[in-house]
Structure formats: structure tokens, C-alpha cells
């Protein structure tokens, strides 16, 4: 049952992400990204990582994609199809990606081909919370510094110069 659910969500994520990198309309790509990220959130759900799934939807779909869309608007991205969105290097890129996928896929299959997972159903939110505040305090705090720095940095970059 979980396998089937996961397969469906995974397939959606796969197809959507393919559209993300091939769509000729940049806004469409952004919207496909929403679909892909949502589907991956579904995958997380299937794996009983509900907390992660929720954060995914909240942060990604809710915040990041909106940010991206704003950025698209600010950079005057066209909504019509734009063949030049993909460069002439795409076949090369495809080959590289395929080779990489082949190597990684082989390695992974060889290593984990026979393993099964049985996700436990009890609330992952509590477990994550425990982990964050019990074990991973330091990275968590550092992450806060990171967020602050990124924020200030983004602001500093976005503020126009005085003479402008």
C-alpha cells in the first residue's frame, strides 16, 4: 500500500520536476516546481515524516515559491514561451546527468537493493523536536545566525545606493 502510494507521489514528483527543467515558460516552471515539491511532501508523508512534509509545504510552497514568483516579476520575466531558456549545452548536460544517474543508481541498487523500510507511524513532530532541542542545539543555533546573516545580507544587497 505504502509502496503504491509512494510510487504515485514519486512519479508525480518526477514528471513535475522534468517539466521544471524543460518548460519553456519560466512561470510554468515555477508552477511545476510547486507540484514537484508538493509531491515530494507527499512522499515524506508516506514515509511518515509528517513534520518534514508540513515544513516542506509551509516553507517551500508557501514561502520560497512565492519569493521566486516575485523575483520573476521583478526581473520582468516573460510569460510567453522562451526557447532560449534552455541553452545549447542541454544535450551535454543530459549526458552528464544520465551518467551520474547511472553511476549513482547502480551504486545505490547494489548497496540497498534488498533493504525494506517499515516507517513507524507515531508522531514524527515530537521526535524531531526532541532531537532539535536535545541533540542538535548547536547547529540549530548556528542556523539562526545563518538566517539572520542571509536576511541582513539580502537586505543590504537590495537597498539601493544612496546616490541612486
Amino acid at each position: 500500500m505504502t509502496t503504491a502510494l509512494f510510487s504515485v507521489a514519486g512519479a508525480v514528483a518526477l514528471i513535475a520536476s522534468l517539466f521544471v527543467v524543460t518548460s519553456q515558460r519560466i512561470v510554468h516552471a515555477a508552477l511545476w516546481l510547486v507540484v514537484a515539491l508538493g509531491a515530494i511532501a507527499g512522499c515524506f508523508g508516506v514515509l511518515h515524516a509528517e513534520f518534514v512534509a508540513l515544513v516542506q509545504i509551509l516553507v517551500y510552497v508557501g514561502a520560497i515559491v512565492v519569493l521566486v514568483l516575485f523575483a520573476l516579476m521583478l526581473t520582468k520575466a516573460p510569460t510567453n514561451p522562451l526557447p532560449s531558456l534552455t541553452t545549447g549545452r542541454s544535450p551535454f548536460a543530459a549526458v552528464v546527468a544520465a551518467v551520474l544517474a547511472l553511476i549513482l543508481g547502480t551504486g545505490v541498487v547494489l548497496a540497498f537493493g534488498n533493504e525494506k523500510i517499515k516507517p513507524v507511524a507515531d508522531g514524527s513532530a515530537q521526535a524531531v523536536g526532541t532531537q532539535v532541542f536535545k541533540t542538535w542545539v548547536l547547529p540549530f543555533e548556528v542556523l539562526s545566525v545563518l538566517l539572520l546573516a542571509a536576511l541582513i545580507g539580502a537586505i543590504a544587497l537590495s537597498v539601493r545606493k544612496k546616490e541612486d
Binding site: T87, R89, F92, A93, V96, L100
Partner: peptide
């Protein structure tokens, strides 16, 4: 910058193969 990225990825793949 994309050629830089491409070179880097190819380099990584090459390293992976080499390592393999």
C-alpha cells in the same frame, strides 16, 4: 559561470569514476 559549473560537475563525475 555555467561552463564553470559544467566543468565542476564533469570533474566530480570523473572523480567518482576514478574513485570507482
Amino acid at each position: 559561470v555555467q561552463t564553470y559549473l559544467a566543468a565542476a560537475v564533469v570533474g566530480a563525475v570523473a572523480l567518482a569514476i576514478l574513485a570507482g
